[in-house]
Amino acid sequence: MKLYPFVIEILQILVLLAIAPVFAGWVKMLKCWSQGRSSPGLFQPYRDIRKLFSKDVVLAENASWIFRFTPYLVFGVALLAGCIIPILSTDLPLAATADVIVLVSLFAIARFFTALAGMDIGTAFGGMGSSREMTIASLAEPAMLMAIFTMSLAGGTTSLSQMTQVILSGQSVFRPSMAFAFLAFLLVAIAETGRIPVDNPATHLELTMIHEAMILEYSGRYLALVEWAGMMKLFLFFTLGIAAFFPWGIAASGDLYAVFSAFFFMGLKLGIEAVFLVLIETGLAKMRLFRLTEFLGSAFLLATLGMLSYFILE
């Protein structure tokens, strides 16, 4: 049975909305197990979101429209990104609207507004978090773009679904440029999703938090949206990595069976990737803020080496 492309698009959004909290729960669960704690369960993020949606919003007196608008924007950006990244199938009508470069800037818009919202209230923590987040962003984005350019060179296109198709039809197995780009992407993804060597998603300690400091003033449904979008962002970065580097299993057509097997493979790959993420998170200590230039500098270096080795070796 053939599915219409827009049906696949809707399926993707549903998968994104439903699976992202489960994935976040899975990561948390693995992390608890690896540290010898009992875990809150796979569906705890759902319960958290539902609880937050039923709570009242407490707004600061001097909160402007930016503060109220940002959660919706961040959530919308995550949804739109979910329509562009080939999570289940490469046959996406909305994929033509944006290539990977636009995808990066979509995430940048979300971050820009989050940083503004952090400063909007005028508390010290918000401003501190915003300034730290922008510092990281200014280092992470060039590395991210460089990794993406390397991938686009190898695939001959900047459209993500076409890139995935090129890799799916794969000719050469040993591509040093892709290996470098993957390593760079890994480092950037850790920084962008705020995982441990860069930022600790579980902390509310004043001096160490980065992303949490920006959204400290949010409550009720706003916080629910921001948290949900954060989980979606983690999920999206993982599926982006899958689509760009390990796309095997993603459906190339709208065939119902292919989409189902793509869903199965996605689950499998995400489950395994989460194990690696948790290994990184429990194995490393959080880095000092001033060490981040080296961390993200090496991401940029790896991406540049990937691009150079594309020209030199391929």
């Binding site: 040993f174 440029s177 290996a179 080296e294 270096l301 790896l302 080496l305 080795s309 070796l313």
Partner: peptide, 24 residues
């Protein structure tokens, strides 16, 4: 062709370790 690709990959790894030594 495969052998040339393997050599290319190993060359990339040699370069990577060179950079690793540079920053370690």
């Amino acid at each position: 062709q495969i052998a040339a690709q393997i050599i290319g990959f190993l060359a990339a790894l040699v370069l990577l370790t060179a950079f690793g030594m540079l920053v370690q």
